[in-house]
Nucleic acid binder design. Structure first.
Length: 422
RNA sequence: GGAGGGAUGGCUGAGAGGUCGAAAGCGCGCGACUCGAAAUCGUGUUCAGGGCAACCUGACGAGGGUUCGAAUCCCUCUCCCUCCGCCA
């Protein structure tokens, strides 16, 4: 959510952002409504002031006197008028609030304008491995080695709900634990293990709602949603709080299962692990002071990259264009890992600065020592990393000529001594 | 699911129809003391809207009601806590 004052003073900037982000929102109607609101509030304030004067004065009047009854009658009349205006203001505020939830965040000036083709590759890391043979796809490796049972996963739940088995399950768990430990021990994040079900307020706070309601799994009986990423529960941890400036930046990391309908996004990614309804992800979330958030964004990106470096997987950093980034983000980097089996780059992480967009929705502030006032914090998050495509990258990059998989060195302690998956 | 208790400023916690935006303590800011710090003393410190200065208005979980006047009385809802039951 944007500040209404800012919107009114920068209508063109907001309009441009809506256009560049391919969103639809009637900014003119919103501004008109808020102007109307202000007009009514002015009338209301005037009436209230008058009524307060009368109420104070009534005690100086002799009970039963003409002035006394006159005062009370006038006060009652004004009271009726006030109630009517209050009702109007409440309605308007409600409409304004609901509309403003559909105004996207404004992209940072460093973000390229355009659709996905305007995305900018910032840098690449690592060397693509040269195989002396034709590398297999992860689907074949998974099936040949029996790491994931897609058919039985579909039997249990439905298609695109993979069921990891045996060494596959172990590798998945190793990956999660390795990433968590890395963020906690090497990068100073505080571990969190949040609930997987989120209420509406939580998902509105981080901006998934109202826009993405159809993309989430909904538990109607309790009006809750399975979390699509750890971002909502972890960021909302501090909803409606005033944070201590000395504690900023606050850094959390959390593993959660993530649930997404992925409606209408099939095509050629119907097989394997590239796009699934339930997957595992380790997420990092930061709360920072406003002037530090872009510096923290770069650090967050580096923290995510460190995981791929430790796993020795080649990747590249992509700066997303205005049309490709999410509703709430001001600037987003994607990290794409190289998968030789399909000779393709796969998105494994998305690292974003939301500035104060989410904080305003969630009402998260800190008290500044500089001016003694409350200010909204900036929130950031990044995956570190999503496991399915990391899993793919490990299999495809670490496959041996005989179809076995060599375990990356950093995962060895988590694999109970297993060095080769066969 | 049943029975009680509660929701007040950054935090803890008083207040029980007008003198309450709200005692006190903590925290924080500023000043004094100090080589410096701690401690101590003094002093300041809620948030939001409108003019954007004086000032006006609103907010004591949310909404509604009673009253000239509500943090304070009544109703509805939400959330939290305790006990019992149920499930694990």
């Amino acid at each position: 959510m944007l500040d209404m004052k800012f919107i009114k003073e920068n209508v063109d900037v907001v309009r441009e952002a809506i256009k560049n982000k391919r969103e639809k929102a009637d900014i003119d109607l919103l501004v008109e409504k808020d102007n109307k609101r202000v007009e009514i509030v002015k009338d209301l304030d005037r009436l209230r002031a008058e009524k307060n004067r009368l109420s104070k004065n009534v005690r100086n009047l002799r009970k039963g006197s003409a002035e006394f009854t006159d005062n009370i009658n006038k006060s009652k009349e004004i009271g009726i008028e006030i109630k009517e205006l209050e009702r109007k203001v409440r309605e308007l505020k409600d409409e304004i609030y609901k509309s403003s939830l559909w105004i996207p965040n404004i992209p940072h000036s460093s973000v390229p304008v355009g659709d996905a083709t305007a995305n900018k590759i910032m840098r690449e890391w690592g060397k693509k491995k040269q195989f002396g043979f034709t590398p297999k796809s992860h689907v074949d490796l998974i099936n040949d080695l029996g790491l994931i049972d897609f058919e039985r996963g579909a039997k249990i739940s439905g298609t695109h709900f993979p069921c990891y088995v045996g060494k596959g399950a172990k590798l998945e768990r190793a990956l999660i634990n390795f990433m968590l430990d890395y963020h906690i021990e090497k990068q100073g994040y505080t571990e969190m293990f949040p609930p997987f079900l989120n209420n509406r307020e939580t998902l509105t706070g981080t901006g998934q709602l109202p826009k993405l309601e159809e993309d989430m799994y909904y538990v109607g009986k309790d009006d809750m949603f399975l979390n699509p990423t750890a971002e909502p529960p972890v960021t909302n941890f501090h909803r409606n709080e005033v944070l201590n400036e000395d504690e900023l930046p606050i850094k959390y990391t959390a593993y959660t299962a993530c649930f997404r309908r992925e409606a209408g996004s099939y095509g050629k990614e119907t097989r394997g692990l590239k796009r699934v309804h339930q997957f595992n992800k380790v997420e990092m979330v930061k709360f920072t002071k406003p002037n530090e958030s872009y510096n923290e964004l770069e650090k967050l990106l580096n923290d995510a990259e460190d995981i791929l470096k430790a796993l020795e997987l080649p990747y590249r950093i992509v700066l997303l264009s205005t049309g490709d980034m999410t509703f709430a983000s001001a600037k987003t980097y994607d990290i794409e890992v190289y998968a030789p089996g399909s000779d393709d780059y796969l998105e494994v992480s998305s690292v974003s600065n939301f500035e104060d967009f989410q904080a305003r929705r969630m009402n998260i502030k800190y008290k500044s020592k500089a001016d003694g006032k409350l200010h909204l914090v900036h929130t950031l998050n990044g995956s570190g990393l999503a496991t399915p495509r990391t899993f793919i990258a490990i299999l495809e990059n670490y496959q041996l000529p005989d179809g076995k998989i060599k375990i990356p060195d950093v995962l060895l302690p988590y694999m109970g001594g297993m060095e080769i998956i066969e």
